[in-house]
């Protein structure tokens, strides 16, 4: 079954320039999809449209076969059962970790919060405020808060960009482990093809609002036609080889 289907989706903020243009793709339930693209290519816009935080200028979005936005219909973000973790984590600064995680819960708050705190390995931190956490901890709380509601589809905006770029860094591995363990339909944005290769099942390349390639991870390097992609793939590959070497030499 398809968790997400997108048809001819376009978005313009100002009525002139398109942040996203005629995008179509779909994702099977249970798959993890990585979106890669330069800054300003429309990645965040795509996530916001899926979550219902922005409205498309044209096109249609279906979640689990149900239309959630098109020219006539808009399902509110509250009713989409989609979770989004922002790049800045957006923790409520005046609430404790516990209160942040249980914010959307209606019942069994304590039980659920304890469970999630354990999952993100932050059992002792329930009563702290976000300002008393490190960046990595904030991010984990943000993910836990989103998972509390068991969303059908999880969206992550650049979950690795704020972390240390060192591939072997513990934080990075920890977040990756958490993401892999979630085991559900997910889209995440990344700058780094390594993260995509490491976690994702498929990969989408965005450039200037257009999808220029959508493939499985296994075929990511195969049959690359597009000049721009070829170039960036080459860069990525040489980068990858260089970094892998460095890692292996350690």
């Amino acid at each position: 079954m398809k968790i997400l289907e997108i048809n001819d989706l376009s978005k313009s903020y100002d009525g002139k320039n398109n942040a996203l243009k005629d995008c179509s793709f779909s994702i099977e339930s249970g798959k993890i999809c990585a979106i890669v693209g330069e800054s300003g290519s429309g990645k965040s816009t795509l996530l916001k449209l899926i979550a219902g935080l922005e409205r498309p200028s044209a096109g249609q979005i279906k979640i689990k076969g149900k239309v959630v936005s098109n020219d006539d219909i808009i399902v509110s973000p509250q009713k989409r059962n989609v979770g989004l973790v922002f790049q800045d984590f957006a923790l409520f600064p005046h609430l404790t970790v516990k209160e942040n995680i249980s914010f959307g819960l209606k019942k069994d708050k304590t039980k659920k919060v304890d469970e999630l705190l354990k999952k993100i390995k932050m059992e002792g931190y329930g009563n702290r405020y976000p300002s008393e956490l490190s960046g990595g901890q904030e991010q984990r709380v943000s993910i836990a808060r989103t998972l509390a509601l068991n969303p059908e589809l999880l969206l992550l905006d650049e979950p690795f960009s704020s972390l240390d770029t060192n591939l072997k860094s513990d934080l990075r591995q920890e977040i990756k482990q958490i993401i892999k363990d979630i085991g559900q339909s997910m889209i995440f944005i990344t700058h780094d093809i390594f993260d995509a290769l490491d976690i994702a099942d498929e990969i989408i390349f965005l450039k200037e609002g257009n999808i220029i390639r959508h493939s499985s991870i296994r075929n990511a390097y195969k049959d690359v036609e597009n000049e721009y992609l070829k170039k960036s793939m080459k860069e990525l590959k040489s980068n990858a080889e260089r970094i892998l070497k460095a890692v292996n030499n350690k």
Binding site: L53, S76, V82, A90, F103
Partner: peptide, 26 residues
């Protein structure tokens, strides 16, 4: 910014309650 209130919406909370619980105290 908008991320706090948008996060609240995605957690299933409506506009008014979001305003009371998030914006007003801040």
């Amino acid at each position: 910014g908008k991320h706090l209130e948008q996060t609240s919406y995605l957690l299933g909370i409506d506009k008014f309650v979001t305003f009371i619980k998030i914006d007003l105290p801040l």
